[in-house]
Structure formats: structure tokens, C-alpha cells
């Protein structure tokens, strides 16, 4: 009897390990697969010409990814710059100031926002954000913009990642023990002083983790962005210029014109570059996070 129980225990433990390994191995397999598929173009042209040139002429076999990489970074940066302050202040309000009753009313719509499919954000972006950028913003800064722009992509993306950041930040603030707040309040600190010196300070690693997750999400977001960012393969010179992020390039073109030599391999390289950007970003932020936590304890 005892032996059967122990055997079952061993089997369950090991089968969970197998399942866990499965997802880890998948990441490696995807990475290797993408690299393997992009090998032809990597052997054909030098890495510097691929990464540092913005000339994209598939029929002349010139594939420069700089415009796409720039587009991806621009859109993501704009999204984070818009989303982070809004999310941070909202999360602070909900976690520190709002009465439980207020919280109960305000929180569900925010959660709902993260459940809306990206394509709806895309349509909404085309109908609202693109005209807004064209008619209300761009005319003050540039001669002409169609509205389909880096900025429009950034705004739509920001709105998509705001609920994500808010919900992570709420979890993070929740882990700050109430006793710490009380300790600060009890010496006569105001609510804001307590937030500034205690809650935010204690949450710094968590805030960073929230940003990392949001950025990773933003890098990869495809459909909503490609609907509003214009998709012209040039490096944007202002935020009112159109851009063409890597995910949009892949989604728009894969499956078409694959008879063009090297074209499929080039798209695979685009995916591989995206993969590497996210991998590097995650690794670097993990190191920073680790250092930060080490310094605090």
C-alpha cells in the first residue's frame, strides 16, 4: 500500500517535470527554427548590411531591416512613454487612495479593457486615433500627415497595455505590507509622502517587472498596430511619419511573393530579429531586477 502511494507520488512529480520542460524546450526550438530558416539570407548578405541598411527591395535582393527595427522601437517607446505614467498614477490611486467601494466600481472596466481583442483596438484606432492625429495634432507640427503614423501606433498600443500594467502594478502594491504604510503614517507622514518614500521605493523591482512585461507585449503586438501605423518601409523622421514594425512586416507579407528568391528567408530573419530583441530585453531587465533586489535586501 505504502509503495503504491510513493510510486504515484514519483510519477506525478516526474510527469509535471516533463510538461514543464516541454514549454522550455519550445522556446529553444522556436529560436533554433527561426535561425535555421533565416540561414540562407544570413549566408547571402552580411549581417551589417542586413541590420544597418534601410533599403528594402526584394526584387533586387536587397533586404535592409533598419526601417523595421526602428519602427518597432519607436512604436514601443511611444507606447511605454504614454502608458507608464497613466498606469502608475491610476494604480497608485486605486491601491492607496480609493475607498474599497470606489475600487469595486472602477476596477472591472479596466480588467475588461484587457480582454478586448486587438483587432477591435485596430478598428477603433483607424476610426478615432488616426483622424485625431491627422486633424488635431499633426497640423501643428508638420506640413502633412495622413494620420497613419508612428504616433497613432504608439497611442493605440499604449491604450492596449495600460490595463496590463495597471493590473500588475496593483498586485505589486498589494504585496507591500500595510504595516509599512502604517509605520510611515504614524510618524505623521502624509499619504503622498508615504507613497513616495515607502510604497514606490519598496515596489521598484515590481514596477520594473511590470514595464518589462508591457514592453515585451508591445514589441510583439501586430494587428492593431499594423492597422494604424501606415506600413511604409522608411525610417520615420518624426512621430507623424508612418512606420513599419517587424510584426506587421511578417503578418502582411508571409505567404505572398514567396517565389521571390530569399524573400521567405528574409521574413524569417525578421521574426528571428524580433525574437532576439525580446530575448535580450528580457535578459537585461532580469539582470537589473536581480541587482535591484539584491541592493534592497
Amino acid at each position: 500500500m505504502k509503495n503504491i502511494r510513493l510510486t504515484i507520488d514519483k510519477i506525478t512529480g516526474n510527469s509535471f517535470l516533463v510538461l514543464t520542460l516541454l514549454s522550455t524546450v519550445t522556446v529553444v526550438l522556436i529560436g533554433v527554427g527561426l535561425y535555421y530558416k533565416s540561414l540562407p539570407i544570413l549566408q547571402n548578405s552580411s549581417l551589417s548590411s542586413l541590420l544597418l541598411s534601410a533599403e528594402w527591395k526584394p526584387f533586387k535582393s536587397s533586404f535592409g531591416f533598419l526601417a523595421y527595427i526602428a519602427g518597432t522601437l519607436w512604436v514601443t517607446a511611444i507606447a511605454i512613454i504614454i502608458a507608464l505614467p497613466i498606469s502608475l498614477l491610476t494604480a497608485i490611486y486605486l491601491s492607496e487612495y480609493a475607498h474599497v467601494k470606489v475600487k469595486k466600481v472602477l476596477l472591472p472596466p479596466i480588467d475588461l479593457l484587457s480582454g478586448i481583442p486587438p483587432v477591435i483596438y485596430g478598428v477603433w484606432g483607424v476610426l478615432v486615433i488616426v483622424p485625431f492625429v491627422q486633424e488635431k495634432l499633426a497640423i501643428h507640427f508638420v506640413e502633412f500627415s495622413s494620420g497613419y503614423s508612428t504616433l497613432a501606433g504608439g497611442i493605440v498600443l499604449a491604450i492596449m497595455i495600460i490595463p496590463l500594467i495597471i493590473s500588475i502594478l496593483l498586485e505589486v502594491f498589494n504585496t507591500v505590507p500595510d504595516g509599512l504604510r502604517e509605520a510611515s503614517l504614524s510618524v505623521g507622514a502624509t499619504q503622498w509622502e508615504t507613497i513616495k518614500h515607502v510604497v514606490l521605493k519598496k515596489s521598484l523591482p515590481g514596477i520594473l517587472a511590470a514595464v518589462v512585461l508591457a514592453v515585451s507585449r508591445a514589441f510583439g503586438e501586430t494587428i492593431a498596430v499594423l492597422m494604424v501605423c501606415g506600413n511604409i518601409s522608411e525610417i520615420p523622421h518624426s512621430i507623424f511619419d508612418p512606420c513599419y514594425p517587424l510584426p506587421a512586416l511578417i503578418a502582411n507579407n508571409y505567404g505572398e511573393m514567396l517565389s521571390v528568391p530569399m524573400y521567405e528567408s528574409a521574413l524569417m530573419l525578421a521574426a528571428f530579429i524580433l525574437f532576439v530583441i525580446i530575448f535580450l530585453f528580457n535578459t537585461i531587465s532580469r539582470i537589473i531586477l536581480y541587482r535591484l533586489e539584491g541592493r534592497m535586501n
Partner: peptide, 20 residues
């Protein structure tokens, strides 16, 4: 409220040193 709280030191069930 803050001036009231300043008048009273608080010692809680377990110590909460501030993150500094």
C-alpha cells in the same frame, strides 16, 4: 490627522523597518 499621528508613536506586532 497627520499632526495627531505625530503625537503618537506606533509599535506594531512585528517590526516594519522602512525600505531604507
Amino acid at each position: 490627522v497627520t499632526s495627531i499621528r505625530k503625537k503618537m508613536g506606533l509599535l506594531s506586532q512585528r517590526p516594519f523597518p522602512l525600505p531604507m
